[in-house]
Design a protein around this nucleic acid. Structure first.
Lengths: 332, 332
DNA sequence: GGTTTTTTTGGCAGCGCTACCAATTTACCG
DNA sequence: CGGTAAATTGGTAGCGCTGCCAAAAAAACC
């Protein structure tokens, strides 16, 4: 069955049906400019009767600037990004903006291609994760003239607006906390750091802090692929097989940490007396575990909200630090 | 700092710079129609030199039909929807389509408003969750002439294309499985069913199956709000406080089930000998828990992929049943 | 070399809407 | 009630691109 083609009602037809001019219909529908109550009623009646749906493609072309906001995000598997989208889309919907997105898979080359595709829609803003972009991406964004928001990272130079928090500070505070609690033989389990540069920043800053304050990192296990509960469990298993006498492990995020926690449960490793666990993200699940997870809670939804608000308000270039909160749970 | 306005390079400028006509540039860029290799090079050089980015708004208006696909989904917190988006966006990106989305919060009225807003972009297709829409939504979609895909449900009549699996069948098989394993005093813990109608269908079909096959549902606990690990733990606690002698609990999904599992761990309730737990969704985490979760694995990513493929191929109206898989884990 | 055929090209009319401006109607004032 | 200010309206030129058609150039043929 071939699908029948769209029968479009146009603004001109509404104008005709209402017995007014096109521009009058346009003004009424956008509630912009002046018109009498009587006219308004006639137009709305015609719109209703004909089932008219304005064509925003045409509208955007005729006016200047769209109400589209483009998100070019690394992943939808990592809960971080759905959370950011959630915060942003709530604000955008309230302000009658539309969110468009595509997923780079942490590949800067793909990011460049997708940014190009996005710019073809002449969005009001492009939202990206972090600061690591190809030269081509940066050049296009600069030339586009649209707003650019870099999310979830503050350790670098922003192109325009940045909203997030410092991953370096998060790594540092995690290390400081573990040292303060008396842990000395500390290991790390993480996922692919070349791709997730924010996790990389946390890790390097974590290590630097240990180096400066005393006992360097004893061992680390880095798994290819995305962060997941499964990789966390596997990673901890491998790490402990190599280095048995660790007293604490820092995970690249809560998913990984949860996997580590499960490994300990399964193997009867007492937490935190035998081994302490520390995560990153502050997922709700961490609060509900039999022992609450020690971690850093990041403002993911708020990052999306604030980013969207700045774009909607056409705010000046700025970097907004939303900070994070260290949760002293029961696992470290 | 006011932001400087966009300086747009247009196709006409590229044509001028390349010393060819506008339509020639258009043909080269779309790789459509015929042109010589020499011309192609000159055009591409001019594009490169001027940093031209085609304007898809204008392109779409001039041609017929856009390469936009609109997703109107209930939530981004429920992992189901990011998974569907993930599957779909991979396929769409390959085919140079763009995904636009908005979030209804499980509110049919909001869905109607968002569908209207989406249709204003004249998308190639609109993707929705399930079959429960307002009359207004249905009317608009019918009149729009664009493809409509209803996802993750097959228990109802599709407007055009449907991709997913039967939630009733899932509820039925879950009940059958628990009965076969010998459980007789079965309870249920779920989240808001009026909003999540697919969970509602699973629940009612689960209950019907129990009624027919023998021991009716002994007790249930339904929590307002979204499904979450936290609500799962709370729900099981409340359920057991009221009804102590249950031997199995069916949860509205894996998040809730995981919460229940944590409750048992914390309270020392032996699983599955003292209490069995059964979930829904088949999240990866279920495989990694100390005892693997008994659940039903749903093809969430595949649902998105297939839906996108059908739209890209402009396939005829149809309902595609992707089925699901019952996982016999260690918790039931 | 002269034709016919095929391939490449450019011109230009829209796509449906908004922004601007001028024309018209209505309100208001002394 | 004339006349000016204010509120409403309609006409129309694009926005940047694609699709159609005819013109021009290149290739093929006798």
């Amino acid at each position: 069955m071939e699908f029948k083609h769209q029968v479009t009602v146009t603004l001109a037809e509404v104008a005709e049906a209402a017995g007014v001019g096109e521009s009058t219909v346009s003004r009424v529908l956008r509630d912009h400019g002046s018109f009498s109550g009587k006219t308004r009623e006639r137009v709305m009646a015609a719109v209703e009767r004909l089932g008219y749906v304005p064509n925003r493609i045409a509208g955007t072309l005729a006016s200047t600037g769209s109400r589209l906001v483009a998100f070019v995000i690394p992943s939808l598997s990592n809960i971080v990004f759905p959370d950011v989208l959630r915060g942003a889309s709530a604000v955008l919907e309230e302000n009658r903006y539309q969110a468009v997105f595509s997923v780079t898979d942490y590949d800067p080359g793909k990011e460049e291609a997708l940014v190009a595709a996005m710019l073809a829609w002449r969005p009001a803003a492009v939202m990206l994760a972090g600061y690591e972009h190809t030269d081509g991406t940066v050049k296009m964004l600069r030339a586009s003239g649209c707003r650019v928001v870099e999310l979830l990272d503050l350790d670098g130079d922003a192109l325009d607006i940045a909203v997030g928090f410092s991953n370096r500070a998060a790594g540092r505070e995690s290390a400081t906390f573990l040292l303060k609690r008396g842990y000395r033989r500390i290991g790390y389990v993480g996922h692919d750091l070349n791709r997730d540069t924010r996790a990389g920043k946390r890790f390097s800053s974590f290590c630097e802090t240990l180096d400066v304050r005393g006992p360097s990192l004893v061992a680390h296990e880095i798994l290819a692929g995305a962060s997941s509960v499964e990789n966390g469990r596997l990673g901890l298993e491998r790490l402990l097989a190599r280095t048995a006498d660790l007293d604490a492990v820092y995970f690249s995020n809560d998913d990984m940490a949860l996997g580590g926690y499960f490994h300990c449960l399964a193997k009867g490793i007492a937490i935190p007396s035998k081994l302490a666990i520390f995560g990153y993200n502050g997922l709700d699940i961490g609060r509900v575990m039999p022992q609450s997870l020690s971690t850093i809670r990041t403002p993911r939804v708020a990052t999306g909200e604030i980013a969207a608000e700045l774009v909607v308000a056409n705010a000046p270039s700025q970097a907004v630090d939303l900070g994070f909160e260290l949760i002293e749970g029961a696992t470290a």
